[in-house]
């Protein structure tokens, strides 16, 4: 239960084409993250799967059944919204019970499932509260509780953590991952945050301007980005790109080096790029140096936290030759 397959799905709003043509196969039980910059069509794609928008053309199969034209209520999917979308006039208990009431489940079953979900999500003592009396994290858990009670074919998450503060976001990330391991239900998770994508996903779909740039496991994307866009999007801080004559030396129209793939020296080295430190961001565990490299522009370098560099220091950078990414004129990886 829970395979999702899109073939040649297209979506336009009037004249504006949001999704030119997407085909995807999501396996049963998989945790797939749609990631991309805002406006890339990731939320639209999720809403197409949910049935909240309809496709301009193409088909959507759920468990092999054509659901392209089915209304959301009939698709058997559950969705967690960015705003949580809890029913403000209902208690936590009624919120979680709502999908079961809609499915006309008997009262005992409803009570039992709500209790179970509440226990799993640590909500038991809040069951009689209204959503407005809950914290952001608790609201998020209620939204998840509402999703799990109906035992859906798949869960859809639309940027569910973006309204939470940083510490809570890390917690909820773990909780959702654990939930997935426990339930083993297919999950599709939309985010613009590549850290969430890397940490949670079995496989990631990188979207840009409505097109799938790459679909693969997190490490695949990190190690073998298909193109310059994926290379730049996955990994933090961003990959440094160099083009022009320096790239031509590597037989590419552009090369990319991740901040963590440099060796750093304070004395001149043969073949090293010479630069001056602009800003040094010290995080304790790591230090990010923003270096103005002569003739190549600003680069970000990751070093360990014990290194102390200051503004204006001269540094010499040597990219790890095994980890230089090469791109052709169209931005495709060579």
């Amino acid at each position: 239960m829970g395979s999702i397959s899109l073939s040649h799905v297209k979506k336009s709003f009037g004249e504006v084409q949001i999704i030119p043509d997407i085909s995807l196969d999501i396996k049963e039980g998989e945790f797939v993250v749609f990631v991309g910059p805002s406006g890339c069509g990731k939320s639209t794609l999720l809403r197409l799967i949910a049935g909240l928008e309809d496709t301009t053309s193409g088909t959507i199969l759920l468990d092999g059944v054509d659901m392209t034209k089915a209304p959301p209520a009939r698709r058997g999917l559950a969705m967690v919204f960015q705003s949580y979308a809890l029913y403000p006039h209902m208690t936590v208990r009624d919120n979680i019970a709502f999908p079961l009431k809609m499915a006309k489940a008997p009262k005992e079953v409803i009570d039992q499932k709500v209790e179970y979900a509440a226990r799993t999500l640590n909500l038991s003592s809040y069951l009689d509260r209204r959503p407005r009396a809950l914290s952001g994290g608790q609201r998020q858990r209620v939204a998840i509780g509402r999703a799990i009670v109906r035992e859906p074919k798949a869960f859809l998450f639309d940027e569910p953590l973006s309204n939470l503060d940083a510490a809570l976001r890390v917690n909820m990330r773990l909780e959702i991952t654990e939930l997935h391991q426990q339930l083993k239900t297919t999950m599709i998770y939309v985010t613009h945050d590549q850290v969430e994508a890397m940490t949670m996903a079995d496989r990631i779909v990188v979207l840009n301007a409505g097109r799938v740039e790459q679909f693969g496991t997190p490490l695949d994307l990190y190690k073998k980005p298909a193109n310059r866009f994926v290379a730049g999007f996955i990994g933090s801080p961003r990959m440094n790109f160099v083009d022009g004559p320096e790239a031509a030396r590597y037989n590419a129209s552009a090369i990319g080096v991740r901040p963590e793939h440099f060796s750093l020296a304070t004395t001149p080295m043969p073949g090293a790029w010479k630069g001056k430190v602009g800003v040094a961001e010290q995080l304790g565990s790591d230090t990010f140096l923003h270096v103005h490299v002569d003739g190549l522009g600003l680069m970000t370098i990751r070093t360990d936290g014990d290194q102390t560099f200051g503004h204006g220091d001269d540094v010499y950078l040597t990219p790890d030759p095994a980890r230089i990414y090469r791109f052709d004129a169209a931005g495709l990886a060579l």
Partner: peptide, 11 residues
């Protein structure tokens, strides 16, 4: 969103 949530919940 809230109405869409209801639709997703099978309403």
């Amino acid at each position: 969103d809230i109405l869409e949530a209801a639709r997703m919940d099978g309403a």
